[in-house]
């Protein structure tokens, strides 16, 4: 897909309450552009559910509970099927990392395992931003959140990166027919993936890296730049797994050091003063990129 081919149609009315420069809100806007009007949006409790108030969407929309988006979509999938209305309708579940990796993991796993035909996009901003920025299962090593603050004894998230929940691997292990990682900095790549997810029969999962300038302590104008640096440093890798086959969709020619990414965000302020932490992060990224064949 080329930029010129992207529809000028917008599926969100103006007046949505997202923070300026919100990566997750951009993700939704682009996803809906890729899917078009025959889409039902199941928006799991989280930032975006709080921004989509007062009739923002131009498509059928439900704000689900925190952990049951995929279960509700399961019911609609089978309900429309028995009523003969399933053809040509996209069911999109849009959820944050807390709703996906933590509280909603069970219902996501169940809906995938039952083979429901739906698209699940997790916008990952690496913490519970809607409730004020608490630590989640995808918060990276070192990051300051409101529940991993800087203190005299302990500072930031201490859980090693190897244990951070890798949703892509978890979903891929289910045998999900379409799994992809994406970034808001690469909109064409992301929208292509959304389209492929829609064409997939059965469950499709996209993990979308989405900058949160408010929660990360970054300049909102740098939302895209930060997301791009995450890819260019190798912290985020863009690929898709179709029926078990992994394909890198965005190659990085010469990876930048992780500090290039870290330096724009106040949540990593203390990491930049800690060479051990920087080394740990860099080592992890190097290993991961070697394993995935990114370089």
């Amino acid at each position: 897909m080329k930029l010129a081919d992207v529809t000028t149609e917008e599926y969100l009315h103006h007046g949505g309450m997202a923070c300026p420069g919100c990566g997750a809100y951009l993700g939704l806007r682009l996803a809906l552009k890729a899917l078009g009007k025959n889409t039902i949006l199941f928006n799991v409790t989280g930032c975006i559910a709080t921004t989509l108030i007062m009739g923002v969407t131009k498509i059928p929309y439900i704000h689900t509970l925190f952990e049951n988006g995929p279960a509700i979509a399961s019911g609609t999938d089978f309900g429309l099927r028995i009523l003969g209305k399933r053809e040509g309708v996209n069911l999109l579940v849009y959820a944050g990392d807390g709703g996906t990796a933590d509280i909603g993991l069970q219902s996501l796993s169940g809906a995938i395992e039952r083979g429901h035909d739906f698209i699940y996009i997790c916008y990952d901003n690496e913490s519970y931003m809607n409730t004020g920025g608490q630590r989640s299962g995808t918060t990276p090593l070192g990051a300051i959140t409101t529940t991993t603050p800087v203190g005299k004894k302990i500072s930031g998230e201490t859980r090693p990166l190897e244990l951070k929940k890798d949703m892509l691997e978890i979903v891929a292990a289910h045998g999900t027919p379409y799994v992809a990682s994406a970034s808001i900095a690469y909109p064409m790549d992301f929208m292509d993936k959304v389209k492929r997810a829609a064409e997939t029969k059965g469950p499709a999962y996209i993990h979308l890296f989405a900058t949160c300038p408010t929660g990360w302590g970054a300049d909102p104008s740098k939302t895209i730049e930060i997301a791009r640096l995450a890819v260019q440093t190798g912290l985020v890798n863009l690929f898709e797994i179709i029926n078990g086959e992994r394909r890198i969709t965005v190659k990085v020619r010469s990876r930048k050091p992780v500090t290039e990414y870290l330096k724009h965000q106040r949540r990593f302020k203390h990491v930049l003063e800690n060479p051990d932490l920087i080394n740990a992060l860099q080592e992890y990224v190097d290993k991961k990129c070697a394993r995935l064949g990114i370089d």
Partner: peptide, 16 residues
């Protein structure tokens, strides 16, 4: 609870 498009009343340009 809200008619579609009611959000247009939120003139978010004032945040700028």
């Amino acid at each position: 609870v809200y008619p579609p498009g009611w959000s247009l009343v939120n003139k978010t340009g004032t945040w700028r």
